[in-house]
């Protein structure tokens, strides 16, 4: 990575010395500590890691700023926060480990870059509601178990099937309930995409 370039299609929020990045395309959110934030902001696609290190030297006060920048670029690249090429930066013969960097640079732990990421949750993942889909098998075949009959009449395989024999108005029926594992499944919200209120995020231009 000769000229690292930060990802463009992200929403950037500054929180003191830290950054939060909302990645539309990857549907992820990232938290960058001050060191990672400084390096990421300097990745303009026109500066080498050495140039970035030279610019950051007064701010980070590390003896081995270039190694620190290389290590940070590796973290950012692994979190897919840098544009192509995606190969990790290589300046020395091999990539430094966190421990080696601490030992070599004699820097404090607080100066190490930290990039934390989460996948943005869907509405159902973020709340308690299960998406369940129930149906009944009314014409019981006495030779088969309820589970077998529910399986034969399966509506979707994208969930966990729970079966039980119920007595409804003096009739025995099999109650088959599928707890859907994929909360965005069409069967949950109906086959009409317009009825699904939880569309996946669309890629957008940089918001800030």
């Amino acid at each position: 990575m000769d000229y690292p370039k930060r990802l463009e299609n992200v929403y950037v929020e500054t929180l003191g010395d830290e950054l939060c990045l909302y990645d539309w395309t990857g549907q992820k959110m990232h938290a960058l500590n001050p060191t990672a934030a400084l390096v990421w902001q300097q990745c303009d696609g026109q500066s080498t890691p050495a140039e970035i290190a030279a610019r950051l030297q007064p701010k980070i006060e590390a003896n081995h700023a270039e190694e620190l920048v290389q290590y940070t670029l590796k973290q950012l690249s692994q979190a897919h926060l840098l544009a192509e090429p995606e190969t990790p930066p290589v300046l020395t013969q091999r990539n430094l480990t966190r421990r080696e960097l601490l030992k070599m640079a004699g820097m404090s732990l607080a100066l190490l870059p930290v990039v934390k990421s989460i996948e943005l949750p869907t509405a159902l993942q973020a709340c308690s509601a299960n998406c369940t889909f129930s149906y009944f098998v009314n014409e019981i075949d006495q030779g088969k178990s309820c589970n077998e009959q529910c399986t034969e009449n399966l509506i979707t395989t994208r969930g966990e099937l729970l079966c039980s024999a119920d007595l409804i108005n003096d009739d025995t029926v099999c109650r088959c309930t599928t707890v859907l594992l994929d909360p965005t499944a069409d069967v949950c919200w109906g086959s009409d995409p317009n009825s699904n209120p939880f569309p996946a995020a669309q890629g957008r231009k940089n918001a800030r």
């Binding site: 929180l15 003191g16 830290e18 950054l19 939060c20 959110m29 938290a31 960058l32 500590n33 990421s117």
Partner: peptide
């Protein structure tokens, strides 16, 4: 937690 970690 720092503000960014709390945001996450």
């Amino acid at each position: 937690l720092s503000p960014a970690q709390a945001m996450l």
